[in-house]
Amino acid sequence: MDVLTINDVSYTYKSKYQTVKALDGVSYSFETGRFYAVVGRSGSGKTTLLSLMAGLDTPTEGAVLFGEKNTASINRDNLRLEHVSVIYQSLNLFPLLTAMENVTFPLEYKGMSKSRAKKIAASKLESVGIGKTMHNRLPAMLSGGEQQRVAIARALATKTEIILADEPTGNLDTENSQNIIQLLKNLAVTENVCVIVVTHDMAVADRADIVLRMSDGKIVLGEYGKEPASEIKL
């Protein structure tokens, strides 16, 4: 099922002195239960694409459709609150809230009761491998991998259909990185979530169901899956 469709999307950054066309007529449909990797040279427009899909902005041209709905005409804050989780390389967590609070906050913000939010958060933290002893730690007291897990637990707890991750393993060592990717990959299957990961790491891309390669604001190669992704030339 297509959960997210980008339809001939272009995006231009405008500053006083110049304009940069970051995306140039990109089209693609993402399905639930799949694990996508987006690769491409630095500056090719990966982050831009991801943020449009997250509803942080709307395309200059074309449309991003969540289901049937154009993100340009819906409440995009609500889109992130209910349907799309975003995970970055770092800075995903509130630095002065504990691991537990970081997960419960969006739940309670949505109106869930305190106790229920806590229960859900505990089970999701558990499922990403964050034990009870770490629940009350502030992010600074967690390793980079643990922080990313907390962010994933939050995405899981909010039950979003789409998880967008921009180099989520960028700060992690290989082992940690593999664990996180495995976690995301499992999610796609078990929770029927659409996971889209932007990465520079070909080892990561190799685990994806589908690899998209971006160049100069375009998706130049889609549906890759036959050869190892590491063979793709960036």
């Binding site: 804050d77 609500n78 609150l81 989780s85 970055y88 509130f94 630095p95 969006p106 913000y109 939050r154």
Partner: peptide
Amino acid sequence: KAEFAVMRSVGMRRGS
């Protein structure tokens, strides 16, 4: 700033 960015990305409304 970073905290407000997290707020934005988890879907908190601007008004909030």
